[in-house]
Design a protein around this nucleic acid. Structure first.
Lengths: 216, 216
DNA sequence: GTCAACGTTCTTGCATACAAGATTTATCAT
DNA sequence: ATGATAAATCTTGTATGCAAGAACGTTGAC
C-alpha cells in the first residue's frame, strides 16, 4: 500500500470514464469495482463520492452510481465556457509571460509543427495538450490553470474525435501560429480573441458531428 | 432518516466553511464531526471526500482534513475568473433572454434599488445575489450557470466584506443599472464588458482591503 | 397466456472493528 | 533543565457486518 488507495481508485475510474471504458450511463457497481481493484467497498465508495462531487458520476439514492451522460447540448455549453477561460488565459499570458514561459510555448509549438506535418494526429493530440498547458502556465494564475486543466480533461473525449475530421490538425496548427504571435507580441486582446475562437470552433465542430451522426 | 446523510453532512460542513464557522486552516476531526452530527465516521469521511474534490478542504494522507486557506492572491485569481464567467453570462443573456428572464432581472433589480436606497447592505447582499442569478439563468447555459453559482458561493465570504466599504452599495447598484440596460438592449459585448468590470472591481477592492489590513 | 402480488435475492447506506501510521507524553541520560 | 528516545494514545485508512430498500423472479389468478 504505497500511496493512497482512494486517490488511486479515483484516478483509475476517472480515466476509465474519460477513455470511455465506462460509457456514459453505465452502472458503476461497488462490489464489482472493489473486487476488480482488490479492495473493499469503502474506498470505492469514497472515490465515487469524489467523482460525484466533480460531476462525473451521478449517485441516485439507494440505486447506485452511474456515469453521467452530459448530452450534446451540455457538451457544447462546456466548450463555450472553455473558450472563455482559454481566452482569459491567453490574454493574461500575453501580459505576464516570462522567458521560461516563452520557451515552453515555443517548444510545444515546434512539437505541434512536427507532429502536424507528419500527419500524426495522435501525437498532435498530446503536443496540442502541452501547448495549451504552456499557455495556462504563462497566465500565472494557478486557479485559472486548474480550472482549465479540469475542463480540458472533461472535454478530452469529445475533442479527440475532432482531430480525425478532415484538415482539422492543419487548421488547428495554423491557429496556434497566430496565437503564439499574439501572445509573444503582448497583444492581450488579440490573444484572447484568437484563443476563444480556436476553442469555440471545436464546440461547433462537435455540434456538426452530432448533427451528421443524428441525420443517419 | 429522511433523505441522505452524506449529502446533508456535505452541505452542513460546506456552509460551516462558507460562513467561517470552520475557519481556513482549521482541522476537521472525523470523530468530532461524527458525534456532533450524531452519525458514524463513514458518512463524515464520504462528505469530506466530496469537499476535498471540490477544493474546499485538503486531505493530507494519514494526517486528517483541514479547511483550505486560499490566501489573498488566489482569491484575487478567483475573482478574475469569476469576472470572465459573469461577462460571458451577460453576453449570452443579452442574446438569449426571454420574457420571463427579463421580468426576473427587472424584479431583482427593483429589489436591489429598494435595499440600496434603504441603506440596508445585508438585504442588498441577498438581492444582489438574486440579480446575478437571474442573469445566469438568462444565459440559458446550464453548465455556465452552475459554474457561476459555485464560484459565487466560494467567494461569498470575501464579497460580503466589501459591501461595508464606503459607498460600495450605491456604486454597485449604479453598475447594475447599466448592465440591465445593455442586456435588455441586446448589446452583448457591452453587457460582457460591464459585468466583467463589475466583478473585477470586487477583486480589486478585496486587494485594497488586504493591503490596508496588512499595512497596520 | 398475461398480469399482478408476493417473496427471494441483491445492493446500497451506515455502523463498527481492527490495523497501521502519527502524535503526544513520559522517562531517562546528559 | 533540556534533549532524545521509547511507550502509550490517538487518528486515520480499510475491511466487514447488518439492516433496509430496490430489483428480480416465481407463483397464482383470471
Amino acid at each position: 500500500m504505497s500511496e493512497n488507495v482512494v486517490q488511486r481508485l479515483r484516478d483509475e475510474i476517472e480515466n476509465g470514464i474519460i477513455s470511455n471504458d465506462f460509457a456514459p450511463g453505465a452502472r458503476l457497481d461497488e462490489v464489482q469495482l472493489a473486487t476488480r481493484f482488490g479492495v473493499s467497498r469503502t474506498p470505492v465508495r469514497e472515490a465515487l463520492m469524489q467523482l460525484n462531487a466533480i460531476g462525473l458520476v451521478e449517485i441516485r439514492p439507494r440505486r447506485g452510481a452511474v456515469v453521467i451522460d452530459p448530452g450534446p447540448h451540455r457538451i457544447f455549453e462546456m466548450f463555450e465556457v472553455m473558450a472563455e477561460l482559454e481566452g482569459l488565459a491567453g490574454s493574461l499570458a500575453a501580459r505576464r509571460f516570462t522567458d521560461t514561459d516563452r520557451t515552453a510555448i515555443l517548444v510545444a509549438h515546434a512539437d505541434c509543427e512536427r507532429s502536424s506535418s507528419a500527419g500524426n494526429s495522435d501525437a498532435y493530440y498530446y503536443d496540442n495538450e502541452r501547448f495549451h498547458k504552456a499557455i495556462y502556465a504563462a497566465s500565472h494564475s494557478g486557479f485559472l490553470a486548474e480550472q482549465c486543466v479540469a475542463l480540458h480533461r472533461r472535454l478530452q473525449p469529445y475533442r479527440r474525435l475532432q482531430l480525425r475530421v478532415r484538415n482539422r490538425v492543419a487548421t488547428s496548427f495554423a491557429e496556434h501560429g497566430a496565437i503564439v504571435e499574439a501572445i509573444l507580441a503582448g497583444e492581450a486582446e488579440q490573444a484572447r480573441t484568437l484563443l476563444r475562437q480556436h476553442v469555440s470552433i471545436q464546440g461547433e465542430r462537435f455540434s456538426d458531428l452530432v448533427a451528421t451522426l443524428a441525420s443517419r
